[in-house]
Amino acid sequence: GVMSYEVKCLKPDPVIYQSLFEKYHLKPEECVFIDDNAANIDAAKKLGMKTILFQDYFQAQKQLNVLCNK
């Protein structure tokens, strides 16, 4: 993961997401971001990630299955 103290910022600052992409050589369009905070979800979407706004386990699992075509 990426720790906020390492990159000196917090979600929803795009820098923290970019740091994660760079650290793990990730492509945003190949990532799924799950969070219960709408502002964090919006920031992730703007960077090209698929997102799930967490409400409960079953809802998140169902949406993840759809995104993964299961």
Rank of each mutant, 00 (worst) to 15 (best):
V2I: 15
Y17S: 03
K50E: 07
D56R: 14
I16M: 07
K46T: 02
K70S: 10
L67E: 08
Q61M: 01
A44V: 12
K11V: 11
F58M: 12
F54R: 15
Q61N: 07
N65A: 15
I52G: 07
E22Y: 00
Q55S: 13
H25F: 02
A43E: 09
T51W: 07
C68Q: 14
Y57A: 13
L20S: 12
N65S: 15
V32Q: 04
F54K: 10
L64Y: 05
V7G: 09
Q18Y: 04
A38K: 15
D42R: 12
Q63A: 14
P14T: 12
V7M: 05
M3N: 08
Q61P: 04
S4H: 11
P12I: 04
V32K: 02
F21Q: 02
P28T: 05
K27S: 04
M49A: 13
V15T: 14
K46A: 05
P28K: 07
Y17R: 05
S19W: 02
Q61I: 10
K23G: 06
V32L: 01
K11D: 14
Q61F: 08
A44Y: 09
K11R: 05
I41T: 04
I41W: 09
Q55N: 14
L10K: 15
A38N: 07
K62W: 01
L64T: 01
L26V: 06
Y24A: 13
E30K: 01
F33R: 10
K11C: 04
D42V: 11
F58E: 08
P28Q: 03
Q61K: 06
L26Q: 13
F58L: 06
A44H: 09
L10N: 13
N65G: 15
K27A: 05
L20M: 15
L47C: 00
Y57H: 03
A44K: 08
L64A: 08
C31K: 03
I34Y: 03
K23Y: 05
D42S: 07
C9Q: 04
I34N: 04
D36N: 15
C9Y: 05
Q55Y: 12
K23R: 15
I16K: 03
Q63T: 09
S19K: 15
V2R: 10
A38E: 13
F33T: 02
E22H: 04
F21S: 04
E22F: 00
K11H: 10
L47K: 10
S19Q: 14
I41G: 14
V32C: 06
Y5T: 00
I16H: 11
Y5N: 09
G48K: 12
